[in-house]
């Protein structure tokens, strides 16, 4: 005859946490995939000036970056200490900007080509001479949307 064995008090079974690592790993991969690393390595010094009225740039895909600043230490032997322009991954001269703008346009979809914003990431110690030259070139290339990259000043 079957008897039900009773072994002491009934206990609540402990909650299985074996799936917790999986969940966390999933989160981890999500963050690893979504956060984009900076796609170009900086060849120039780039400390942007502070401003209080900055606005965020919407639509990252429509932004093309132009870096200006003093070349980093390892490039100073070859390029000197005067501020230089960096387009994509190499140093460039002012004359190359028009070609750069054209290639940036080519890379975008046709309907987006007129809404490209040129993000001027200029080091704060640079003088205006080179910046004005760049602006003139951008005007000649008819790429008129410009963002003067600056960091939001912490509010007092």
């Amino acid at each position: 005859m079957a008897t039900f064995k009773r072994e002491g008090k009934k206990e609540v079974p402990s909650l299985s946490t074996s799936s917790l690592p999986d969940i966390v790993f999933m989160l981890l991969f999500f963050f690893m995939v979504t956060t984009t690393m900076r796609d170009v390595s900086l060849l120039v010094a780039n400390t942007m000036p502070q401003a209080s009225e900055t606005v965020k740039l919407e639509k990252k895909s429509l932004v093309s970056n132009i870096y200006v600043g003093k070349p980093n230490d390892q490039f100073q032997a070859a390029y000197g200490t005067e501020p230089r322009i960096q387009l994509n991954d190499k140093f460039a001269s002012v004359e190359e900007i028009q070609a750069f703008v054209a290639s940036e346009r080519e890379a975008r979809k046709e309907e987006d080509r007129n809404s490209i914003t040129n993000n001027l990431k200029v080091d704060r110690r640079v003088t205006m001479g080179i910046v004005t030259d760049i602006k003139q070139e951008l005007r000649k290339a008819n790429s008129l949307r410009v963002n003067y990259g600056s960091v939001k000043r912490p509010t007092r």
Partner: peptide, 21 residues
């Protein structure tokens, strides 16, 4: 670690429209 190190750096700045050449 990844949350702390990856900065979602949003570009900011002063937007201007240049006059046509």
């Amino acid at each position: 670690f990844f949350l702390m190190t990856t900065s979602m750096n949003v570009d900011s700045g002063l937007f201007r429209r240049l006059p046509p050449y």
